[in-house]
Amino acid sequence: MNERVEIILSGSGGQGMILAGIILADAAIREGKSVVQSQSYGPEARGGASRAEVIIGGEELDYPKISNPDILLAMSQQASDKFLHRVKKGGLVILDSSYVADFPRPDGVRLYSIPISDTARDGLGKEMMANMVALGALIQVSGVIGRDNVQKAVEERVPSGSLEKNILALELGRKLAKNSDIL
């Protein structure tokens, strides 16, 4: 069996973390990998804490939740406070600097702080696209899933009217990450 990679995508309700998680999981299947995706959110549809968990690879019927992620995306201060200290040694963290100002620098963790939401708002005119910008950044710096398969998953799961913008957002995210340095 292939190696198990555990990813937490976290933020506030309405930031599209769950859709991002589903797209990532869908893309993993396109690469022939096994995948488990779960989510957690409050009863409110918008505004509360929200997170998606994606486990790529590993054995069938294994524990479906994540205690210590290999990769963390945190799109809110609350999410960063909650999960940053749990990231495994050697893990990867992407923080949205548009919302996360205050964070520790754990040893042995690759940490990027990049303006994801600002980029979505300024570059695409829609902060709603932040999840796709984040996903682009995540696949760029993690290499966990190929870009083409993510794009195919987006094509399947995003309404055709906004498809072009979503693909653009992915690209913006990739470029943003490419030009960022590990803190």
């Binding site: 589903i22 299947i29 096994s34 995948v35 488990v36 779960s38 479906p64």
Partner: peptide
């Protein structure tokens, strides 16, 4: 609820 809301291959 865990199995009901899990997405898997």
């Amino acid at each position: 609820e865990v199995v009901a809301h899990l997405r898997e291959r």
